[in-house]
Structure formats: C-alpha cells, structure tokens
Design a protein around this nucleic acid. Sequence first.
DNA 1: CATGAATGAGGATTCATTCAT
DNA 2: AATGAATGAATCCTCATTCAT
Lengths: 216, 216, 216, 216
Amino acid sequence: MPDPKDPRNRKPDAERSRADILAVARAEFVEHGLSGARVDAIAEKTATTKRMIYYYFGSKEGLYSAVLQQAYAGIRSAESTLELRQLDPLAALRRLIEFTFEYEDAHPDFVRLIAIENIHQAAYLTRLATIRNVNADAIATLEEILSRGRAAGVFVRACDAVDIHLMISGLCFYRVSNRHTFGAIFGCDLLETELRERHKAMIVDTIVGYLTSRQA
Amino acid sequence: MPDPKDPRNRKPDAERSRADILAVARAEFVEHGLSGARVDAIAEKTATTKRMIYYYFGSKEGLYSAVLQQAYAGIRSAESTLELRQLDPLAALRRLIEFTFEYEDAHPDFVRLIAIENIHQAAYLTRLATIRNVNADAIATLEEILSRGRAAGVFVRACDAVDIHLMISGLCFYRVSNRHTFGAIFGCDLLETELRERHKAMIVDTIVGYLTSRQA
Amino acid sequence: MPDPKDPRNRKPDAERSRADILAVARAEFVEHGLSGARVDAIAEKTATTKRMIYYYFGSKEGLYSAVLQQAYAGIRSAESTLELRQLDPLAALRRLIEFTFEYEDAHPDFVRLIAIENIHQAAYLTRLATIRNVNADAIATLEEILSRGRAAGVFVRACDAVDIHLMISGLCFYRVSNRHTFGAIFGCDLLETELRERHKAMIVDTIVGYLTSRQA
Amino acid sequence: MPDPKDPRNRKPDAERSRADILAVARAEFVEHGLSGARVDAIAEKTATTKRMIYYYFGSKEGLYSAVLQQAYAGIRSAESTLELRQLDPLAALRRLIEFTFEYEDAHPDFVRLIAIENIHQAAYLTRLATIRNVNADAIATLEEILSRGRAAGVFVRACDAVDIHLMISGLCFYRVSNRHTFGAIFGCDLLETELRERHKAMIVDTIVGYLTSRQA
DNA sequence: CATGAATGAGGATTCATTCAT
DNA sequence: AATGAATGAATCCTCATTCAT
C-alpha cells in the first residue's frame, strides 16, 4: 500500500495545488482587480502556502496570466459544444447570440476578468500565445453562418463577421460589466430574471433585424 | 507683465490647486485604476504637494470620488448642449446615438473610469448624491424622442427607454472599453478612423432599424 | 447701542474664547493624554478656530500647561473652603482625608491629568511658577492639624506631615487613577457607591489608626 | 569561536528577535506612552528592522499589548517565589507588603506601564486573556494570610482581601507613579534611600496596624 | 484681534518577493 | 519538491504649526 506521505506517491497533489491556487486567485482577482488583489489574501484562502504560489506561478502577474488563460479556455470549451453547422443560418445565429448572452450572464467573473484586463490594456492577454487563434475560431464560426445566410438570401445586409461579433459582444457584455453603475443610476438590477429575458430577446431581435433588413 | 510661474505672483488659488490635482489624479486613476494609482505619483505631477491632496480631498478614495463626479458632470454638460427637441424624432434619435458614440470615442478616459468604477461595484458612484437625478435626464430626453416617434408612427416597436439606452450604451461603450482585448484577439484597432465611421453608422442603423421595424 | 460686530465692543469674548478652548482642551487631554490629544480635535469642538489656540496658547504644550495650571487652581480653591482650624484635630484630620477622597472621586479628570503629567515626568508642572507655594498650603494645613493633635495627646505617632500627605494621597488617588486596571483584574468597579463608601471609611480609619496608635 | 555579531553566525533566531524588540519597545513605551512612542524609534534601537516589528506583533498596539503582558508576567513570576505559607500570618503579611513595595520601587517601568494602561482605560489589558486569573492568585495568597491571621486572633479587623490589596497597592504604587509631581511640589525625591526605607516601614505599619486593631 | 489656506516632516502600515534549508 | 522566516521599498496618511491678509 502506497504511503501518501512519500512525495513520490503524491503526484496528483501538485496538480491539485495548482488548481486550488488558481481557483482562489481567480476569485481574488475578480473581486479586487490585479492591483487590488493581495497575494497574502490568496495564500490564506489556499490549502497551500504563499511560497507555493511563487513556486508554481513565479509572480503575482504570472498567476494573473494563468487565471486569464484559464478563463479564456473556459469560454472556448463552452463554445465548442455548440453545434451550429447543423442549424439553418437564422437559427444558428440566434443560438450563437443566445449562447454569448447566457455565458456572460452566467459567468460575471469572466466578464469582470476581461474588464480588468482591459484596464491593463490587454498587456497580459497579448503575451498569451494561445489566445489569438483560439478566438479566431469564434469568427470563423460566425463567418460560416453569415455566408450560409447570405447564400440562402436570409441575410441581406453586407457586413463583416468581426463587426457583427463586436455588436453581439457589446450588447451582451455591457449589461454584465456595467451593471453596477447602470444599476446605481437607473435603480435597476440588470441581472434580474425578467429584465434578463427581455434583454436577451431584444438583443437577438436587434442583431437578426439588422442582418435581415436591407441597408437604409 | 507678472510671471504667473513665480509663486509671489500667484494668488493662493484654492480653486486652481483643486483643479490641478483633479486633472492629474484623473489621468493617474484612468491609467492605473483605483488600487493601482499612487498618491505619490499624483502629487509629483502636481504643482502642489501630497499634503494638499489630503487637505482638499481627505483621502485617495475622496480624490477618486471627486474625479468620478467630475467625469459624470462632463458628459452631462456635453449632453445638455444637444438640442434634440428641435429635430424630428428620427433625426433626434440618430443625433443622440451619434453623440453617445462620439463622446465615448473622444473620451476613452471617461469610459475607463466607468469601467474602473464597475470593478469596484459602483461603490463610489453610489455615494455621490448628485448622480442619480443627473442621469435621469438622459432617460427623459430619450423618452421624449421615443414618444414623439411613436406618435408620428415612425417608431413602431413598443419598448422601454431604459432598454434602448442600455443597447446604445452597450454598443458605444464596449468598442472603447474593450478595444484592447478585442484588438489583441482580432488584430485590429477599433479606434482607427475607418472602423470608427463604419461602426458608428452600423450602430445607428441597428438601433434605428430595431425601433422602426415591427416585432418579429 | 453698541454694535456687537465691532471688535471694540466684544471685549469679553476673548476671555470666553480662552475659557472655551481650555475646557475643550482639558477634556481632550484627559481622554487621550498629551501625545494622544489632537489639536485639530480640540479646534473642532471649540467655538473658535485652530488658529486661535495658537494665538492664545502658543503651542499644544502651552495649552496643556494652561490646562494643568487650571486643574491645580481648581483643587486649591476647593481646599481653601475647608475650615479646619475650627475643628478639633481628629475631626479636622477626618475632614481633610474625606475632602481628598471626595474631591478625587468627584474629579477623575483631575486625577487623570496628574497621572498624565507624571508620564511626562512633571516636566510641565515644574515650569509652572505658581505651583510650588500653592501646594505648600496643603502641607501647612496638615502640619497645623498634626501639631495640634500631638499637643492634645490624640496623635501619639511621631511623623512628618509630608509622609502623612503621601499616604492619604496614595490611598485616595490610586483607586481613581488605577480603577481601570484594577477593575479589569478584579472584576469590580471602584467608583461604585457601595465600594466607595466602604473605602472612604477604611482610608480614614487607616490613617487615623496609624496616627493614634503607638509605634510598634 | 564564532562571532555572534556576524549575521552569518547567527541562526535566524525568531525568539531572540522577538525578545529584543520587546525589550526595546518596553523602554520606548515606558518613556513616551503608547501614543508618544514611535515605531521608527523602536526599530532603530533594535537589531532587526521595523518590518519585523509588524511581522511579529502586527501593529504598534499589538506590540504594546505584548509588552504589557510581559510586564504582568514579570511581577507574577516574582510573586511566585515568595513562600508565604511557611511564615506566620503577621510575618507573611509584612513580607507581602514589603515585596510589593520593593518590586514597584525597583521596577518604576512596570509602574509607569500600568499608569499608561490606565490612561487608555485598560483597553489593552482587558483583551489579554491570561491576565485575570493570573492576578486572582495574588488575592488568593492574601486571602489565605488573612484567614490564617483571623483564626490565630492576630487580625481582628473584619475585611475583604481585595480592599487590603487596594490599600497596599495604593500606598506602594503612588509613591512611584506620582513621584514626579510629588517631587515637584514638595521638593523631594521619593525614591531616595532614606525616604524609601522610612516609607516602607510606615506602609507596613499602617496596614498591619489597621488589621490588628479593632474597628473604631 | 482674527482667519482660511497651506505645509514639511514624519507616522503607521503594507506590499510582493526571496532567503536558507 | 517544498517551506517557514524574513525583508526593502514603498504606500497611504497625520501632525503641529505658520503664512498672508
């Protein structure tokens, strides 16, 4: 029977430690931003020690980068479960918009992380090698839908996939990222069920309407 | 003619000192966020001393709040120069969207400040007494346009002014707030002239299209 | 009719301002000690401004000295109302002890101020010219009682008035000055009525007993 | 033989660092009080750095609390070497009073610390968990002496041990705590040998006399 | 006599990180 | 592979006091 105290028999622990640190760090960065987050605070909530954070991630910034990468991996993995090619272009588009809306609605942490990264001018994202092609996928998917739709005569508006992606993202992201200031000013909670459903429909209609109507 | 740089020729000008500090602080907060900003760094770039920052604003947070308030005052004052009542509903709507787009495009600092405030869950905005009614104005204006448009039969979509405001804001804000991550991923610069003009038109068309087309 | 806004008609205000500042300062010094007291805090609670404190008292230390002097003047003035010469020696002694006990019991502020001054090694008291002869009075009074008592054969113990004064003071002062630590350790409140009366009697008995009993 | 002053020859000795800081801090707090003490001043006189003070004690107040605790531990440990049960009640009482007198006479630092803590209304002492039962010991000892004395018919006065403790403390403490103001007013030095011996005898006689004489 | 604005010097505390083993 | 102890360099903030009028 293997002795769990023998380091040779504890191999999965390193993975678990890393994952533990990463999860705690994510929460801390999401709550306080990069500068506001405290390495000490992360260490305290972790099963391991502060020293391990440096052992595994090198620095606070290294840890933040790892959190960021993991966050992008998460949405990418979710996106990959969408099977849009099987749907007709309109349905596929609706599905894609709804997915974006729902993912960001369900993952305000992810949204905050992106907002934080923008405060830092995407300095850390830029250094993540994997990111760029990762998200090229998203555009390829959208492009495919648009071209199918154009071919079918459903989408009559000439437009760029990146532009459409920008609009979808803006509409879905903003209501999560800016819910606090928006709520403070207009006295409402954008994440509340009723508003959420109304806005989801509205966003889908807006984008679909734009693509299916001829240029003014 | 007296040299204004010679301290003997400078009246102790509380207003100017305050304004100077505020301008420098705004730049620092915009660049580094609330936690990332350094009071020392602000003081150094100021004509006065660190001590004065505390004298006038009480604390780093007090200074940040003042910056935030000033930022909102700025957009409000700009909005108030719009004379939308003189325009027909469609023109007024276009003008309002264009104004939002252009203001945020021209003031990325403002956009960053709002993003930063959202990272802090609008904790400071909430405490600014003046804010809420300030921005109620924006909605009143939009509401007036929408109801005139509905009366004239131009806007056929039943909808809430706050919802429309949310969509306009999302579309205009996101391309500024998220231009760094968006640029990193899609290899483009959203603030570049060509893209800007295309997106401005697109956003106007999207919102106008939504309001002028009947519900699906 | 005199105009109260004309400074020439406001002469008594200077006195009132001084007295106001002194009262507020006394409370602040008593609560926080000399180093712990804040000139700003004093100024805020005052009807006048911080500048006036410096105008009247020169410095924080000058203000503290004035408070100290006033405190000693207070007890001296109270002492001077005692008419001990009319009483027989024993009654006079009892009366003197009771007065000391009651004055310190009723003026914990005074006691704290003396304790604070001792923390500062009586540096400020030493500089108050008036103090020394002021308190010589107290000893002269006690000396007179003791010598009358000795002559009458009531006080049979040979002893120095200053030593007796020291014992009376120690017994009366300590229960007020150290009531907090004593209370924390022994779980009692030394200022409570029942204890107070018991201790008063005890202290009188102790001193009287000492003076009226022959050396062991 | 290795030189202990060479850092390379000094094991990182947490205990020694802590003790060093504590000793220096005690001197600083004793001299200037809690508010008057400077963390920088303490750090400078220490072999370690200011940072270590915070590492070990968390805050200036934490350091002060540790000093206070150590001070109480010191007197308790000294008390515990007294072997009063072996002495007859009168001798035991005399010994206890003399011990109190001599300990406070020899440790004016301790006396000042208690005085300082009273300025702070025993706020820090109250939070020291260990203190209360520690000093219950002192009362238990005194109680045992008193009850033995009462049984033996030596102490004829009915009285509470806490009251007697209060009187002993008052008499011994005051001459140390208030020696500065007392000296300033009466032009004497209470710590001088001749006075000290006279007062010690006087205090013992006073308390013993009180207990051995019948209530008036 | 009175005052609002200003301030140099210092004060407590915190931070991400590394050393020695 | 793992870690408890240690730390230099900031960081935010406060203090008693004075200036200019």
